[in-house]
Design a protein around this nucleic acid. Structure first.
Lengths: 68, 68
DNA sequence: TAATGAAGTCAAGTATACTTGACCTCTAGA
DNA sequence: TCTAGAGGTCAAGTATACTTGACTTCATTA
């Protein structure tokens, strides 16, 4: 599932580690989601969207072709 | 996590089984989510929201107190 | 050069979303 | 009455989100 996290994070000039601590997950979880290794849980999606001031649907790109 | 699924489903006059088949999960999964036994995955949340014509944030009620 | 930090990745473990199959209870209709 | 459908729940299994800890590479800077 594609998302805008890496882009938005870089605009904010924060590291994966800093973003991870903002949303209470590990740095590896952020890395994996940015690189589409796995999909976030609904709470993590919510926390990330909230952190960037977006809706879940705007932060994550739901495309049928991305469905596992 | 509270949600409006049961209410909206009953307004549409469809059963848990029918809703389940619309979003490609088991009847038990719908039942468990309606009764807050567990949280939906992000894709299921998306599919349910889309089915009812709502955003994920409008269908599911994210409240800190509900966080596990 | 050497050291440090940021990012990518892997392995092993844990938590939980979801499945199938079963059983029970209640209600509505034949 | 009897039966079928709807909903609630349980047990056991599978898939995957996420953790911790470790290692590597690359870029920046002392």
């Amino acid at each position: 599932m594609k998302n805008s996290i890496k882009l938005l994070r870089e605009e904010k000039r924060i590291t994966q580690k800093q973003l991870a601590s903002q949303v209470n997950v590990s740095r590896q979880a952020i890395n994996a989601i940015e690189n589409e290794k796995f999909e976030p849980s609904i709470w993590l999606a919510y926390d990330l969207a909230k952190y960037f001031g977006l809706s879940i649907e705007d932060l994550f790109h739901f495309e049928e072709s991305d469905r596992k």
